[in-house]
Amino acid sequence: MNAHQNILALFVVCSVVLIVHTLSKWRQKLSFGGLIVYTLFVLYKTVFSRKRGFYSVNLDLGWSYKAMLNGVPGMFSQIYLNIMFFIPVGIFIEGFLLKKYKGRYILSIVYGVMLTVIVECLQLLFHRGTFELDDILNNTIGTIIGILITLKINMCRGKNNGRS
């Protein structure tokens, strides 16, 4: 799959996520199911679909941003795709938790961080990629953006429901 196909697939996933999120009656159940399916998709795409043999560790936090600023080709796309890849995680987890838990925002971020740490560890364990702190940072940013999108949707929905 090339970058354009990845972006198109991500757009489709985000669209489905947002449509599911607007269906308030089924939102929590669909969000839970979506979270499970998307988590499995993330694990497949980032670990199990890759060929065995390449692995390394990069603990230099911010290296990809430095490389992007220095004009290294493909760095912007790598950062952008890592962020975009986890936006659905933030949307799904927020849709599932709704207003059940006081610390739901922290719990949502923790889920995103844990998922990305698991991915990075599995890549290292199965020799299928690089364990990178930048990936953890970028995926966490994506999760937070997903949470913020959900909050904005809920605020708009609350305003519209108040006018009815």
Rank of each mutant, 00 (worst) to 15 (best):
residue 67 A to C: 05
residue 144 I to C: 08
residue 90 G to T: 04
residue 130 T to A: 12
residue 91 I to F: 00
residue 92 F to L: 07
residue 72 V to S: 11
residue 86 F to E: 00
residue 59 L to T: 02
residue 69 L to A: 14
residue 20 V to P: 00
residue 69 L to C: 08
residue 7 I to V: 15
residue 78 Q to P: 00
residue 63 W to D: 11
residue 22 T to M: 14
residue 137 L to Q: 06
residue 35 L to R: 06
residue 35 L to P: 06
residue 143 T to F: 08
residue 123 Q to R: 07
residue 1 M to D: 04
residue 41 F to T: 10
residue 10 L to Y: 07
residue 39 T to L: 03
residue 148 L to P: 00
residue 80 Y to P: 00
residue 16 V to S: 02
residue 11 F to S: 15
residue 102 K to W: 09
residue 64 S to Y: 02
residue 164 S to E: 12
residue 69 L to V: 11
residue 118 I to Y: 00
residue 163 R to K: 14
residue 106 I to R: 11
residue 63 W to I: 13
residue 84 M to R: 00
residue 88 P to E: 03
residue 73 P to G: 08
residue 120 E to S: 05
residue 12 V to S: 05
residue 87 I to Y: 02
residue 126 F to M: 10
residue 152 K to T: 14
residue 108 S to D: 03
residue 7 I to C: 06
residue 32 F to K: 09
residue 58 N to A: 06
residue 158 G to S: 14
residue 19 I to K: 04
residue 100 K to L: 11
residue 125 L to A: 10
residue 155 M to E: 15
residue 107 L to W: 01
residue 53 G to I: 08
residue 90 G to K: 03
residue 12 V to M: 10
residue 18 L to E: 02
residue 40 L to K: 07
residue 146 G to N: 07
residue 70 N to E: 13
residue 109 I to C: 05
residue 157 R to C: 01
residue 128 R to K: 13
residue 113 V to R: 08
residue 163 R to H: 07
residue 114 M to K: 01
residue 138 N to M: 11
residue 24 S to M: 04
residue 155 M to H: 14
residue 3 A to H: 02
residue 87 I to R: 03
residue 72 V to I: 07
residue 11 F to T: 15
residue 54 F to D: 05
residue 4 H to T: 13
residue 72 V to Y: 10
residue 151 L to R: 03
residue 104 R to Q: 11
residue 32 F to G: 11
residue 29 K to D: 04
residue 161 N to E: 15
residue 105 Y to S: 05
residue 89 V to C: 06
residue 108 S to E: 02
residue 106 I to Q: 08
residue 68 M to S: 03
residue 96 F to E: 01
residue 154 N to Q: 12
residue 130 T to R: 04
residue 18 L to Y: 08
residue 128 R to Q: 12
residue 22 T to P: 00
residue 18 L to C: 15
residue 74 G to M: 06
residue 57 V to A: 06
residue 69 L to S: 12
residue 91 I to G: 02
residue 150 T to I: 02
residue 80 Y to W: 09
residue 128 R to L: 12
residue 21 H to W: 11
residue 84 M to L: 13
residue 140 T to C: 09
residue 19 I to V: 15
residue 40 L to R: 09
residue 61 L to K: 04
residue 150 T to F: 12
residue 149 I to D: 02
residue 6 N to S: 15
residue 60 D to Y: 06
residue 2 N to K: 11
residue 39 T to N: 01
residue 149 I to E: 04
residue 23 L to V: 10
residue 136 I to V: 15
residue 118 I to H: 00
residue 15 S to E: 00
residue 42 V to F: 01
residue 135 D to Q: 11
residue 84 M to F: 06
residue 83 I to S: 06
residue 42 V to K: 01
residue 157 R to W: 07
residue 6 N to C: 06
residue 5 Q to N: 10
residue 104 R to I: 05
residue 140 T to S: 14
residue 126 F to L: 14
residue 108 S to R: 01
residue 104 R to K: 14
residue 59 L to G: 03
residue 52 R to C: 03
residue 48 F to K: 05
residue 47 V to A: 07
residue 34 G to D: 02
residue 3 A to M: 07
residue 82 N to I: 04
residue 86 F to T: 09
residue 91 I to M: 11
residue 146 G to T: 03
residue 90 G to N: 05
residue 122 L to T: 05
residue 93 I to R: 01
residue 140 T to L: 06
residue 95 G to C: 09
residue 138 N to D: 09
residue 144 I to V: 15
